[in-house]
């Protein structure tokens, strides 16, 4: 894979031009944080921006990130599949991630998670039939004192009860 300069038009023909523009506009200021010859350092931010702009990390989105950072698409894919926060498959409109690690379960997370699976009719990692919510069990979120905790579209919500969770899910449109 040749090392292309960032900004080259390569590998982007399968993506909408407007999205690519937004991707570049968000990524390029971040590249300044890393040494000139170490642009690949921006892989995590690039993939995050790609997911934000295009919805999920499809192969063309990973290829775009790789192209802008001068590395092979395989490298982008390797990173995208290593970190659990990246989605390489489409997800629901909202992603609900509940921690079921020890401190959360000691305060009821296990029961909440089970009730949610039943209510939404999905298994761990599943998306509701209407495509609204993807439910996922995640590891410790660093909210053990204010447990149980969950992320809704990456926003942390703490001191959960089943009633509180149901109310939040009900408000998701």
């Amino acid at each position: 894979m040749p090392n292309r300069e960032p900004g080259s038009p390569g590998a982007v023909k399968d993506l909408p031009a407007e999205g690519v523009q937004r991707f570049d506009a968000e990524l390029f200021p971040i590249l300044r944080r890393y040494p000139e010859d170490r642009k690949a350092s921006a892989m995590l931010p690039a993939l995050r921006i790609g997911e934000h702009v295009f919805g999920y990390l499809s192969p063309p989105v990973m290829a775009l990130a790789a192209d802008r950072l001068g590395v092979s698409p395989a490298r982008a894919q390797e990173v995208a599949t290593f970190y659990v926060m990246f989605n390489t498959k489409p997800v629901g409109r909202h992603v609900v991630e509940i921690c079921t690690n020890v401190s959360c379960c000691l305060t009821g997370a296990d029961r909440i998670f089970r009730a949610l699976k039943q209510k939404l009719g999905v298994e761990n990692g599943g998306t509701t039939a209407d495509g609204l919510i993807t439910l996922r069990e995640v590891e410790c979120l660093g909210s053990c004192g204010t447990a149980p905790a969950m992320l809704v579209d990456e926003e942390m919500i703490e001191q959960l009860t089943l009633q509180k969770v149901e109310k939040i899910l009900g408000s998701l449109g």
């Binding site: 944080r33 170490r38 690949a40 350092s41 921006a42 892989m43 995590l44 931010p45 993939l47 995050r48 950072l69 590395v71 490298r75 390797e78 990173v79 290593f82 970190y83 659990v84 926060m85 990246f86 995640v138 590891e139 410790c140």
Partner: peptide, 29 residues
């Protein structure tokens, strides 16, 4: 002096110092 924030993407192992460096270099941890 420049200080930058680099946000991870969900991997406990990146708290291990050398995995953290790999991640900061844009690789898997």
């Amino acid at each position: 002096l420049d200080v930058h924030v680099h946000r991870g993407a969900g991997a406990y192992i990146c708290g291990e110092e050398s995995a953290l460096l790999e991640s900061l270099e844009g690789k898997k941890g």
